[in-house]
Amino acid sequence: MAAIELNGVTKRFEDDDGVFETLQLSSTPSVTAVNDLSFSVAEGEVFGFLGPNGAGKSTTINMLLDFVRPTEGTIRVLGHDAQAESVAVRRRTGVLPEGYDVYDRLTGREHVEFAIQSKEADDDPDELLSRVGLDPEDAGRRAGGYSKGMTQRLALAMALAGSPDLLILDEPSSGLDPAGAREMREIVRAEAERGATVFFSSHVLGQVEAVCDRVGIMRNGELIAEDSIRGLRSRIGTDSVLRLDVDGNADLAAVRNVEGVSSVDADGERLAVSCTDDAKTSVIEAIEASGATVADFETDTASLEDIFIAYTEGGKTTEETEVSA
């Protein structure tokens, strides 16, 4: 069974329809935040939900949690309808929402106790708090005085209460320093090892690369790619850029003919060859065979960041990539 399953989900935000707004004659045009979105996340999977700000990630997550309702389509989470059976979903889900705030007057520990009570769990609040790196002194203080990073740790502790089957984390690393972000990843990994499904969003690739089994990339309310990190890499087609300083005239046509080479750019005696990892040796051999010598070379591995930018900013590779769902 899939932990999360979306089917043709669309969310349009119409203008507000509060009692008072209906009296006003102004109307704002509706905005389509999510458009015909379908994908699923398997049980036990760590799924990274990527995309630039405003791509529809949070709206999607808010629909999983029934904070907002889809205009069209169906959503099932842990086998329950996300709208009709939202409480059942949230009983087994730990959530780190986006755009939340803590109760200023309750202490950190009271927040965690409230989460434990609500989930009818029997965790030790101090254990959860130390797990997310909130020291006991801070845990006893009112959360109103917390920094963004401490608030984020507190919310994560609340999410972990009751050993949920599913963790939904919306931009979990925001507000955390690099060390905090690393601890966050370690917690995600530990939860996945325990058997939990983890669904988390990020606009920072580095957070995702190390922990995700699979990623989905959102742009303008649509899922434009869904694959493993390796799959995404290979789909971009170019794994590495080989930069070479060449003495003499290399036969560029011969280099282009090497299997696995996708492009060759020459700038005087400097060549930049985009190719797969396996093709590197053949490229150097082809250059030397044409009578030139390779004085020096270096390899740039295409980072996930490059892939991400290629997808989300609509480079030529994006146009060629079919969306798989």
């Binding site: 059942a88 949230r90 959530v95």
Partner: peptide, 8 residues
């Protein structure tokens, strides 16, 4: 959101 993230 914190309140409704829990099973309330």
């Amino acid at each position: 959101k914190l309140l409704l993230s829990l099973p309330n």
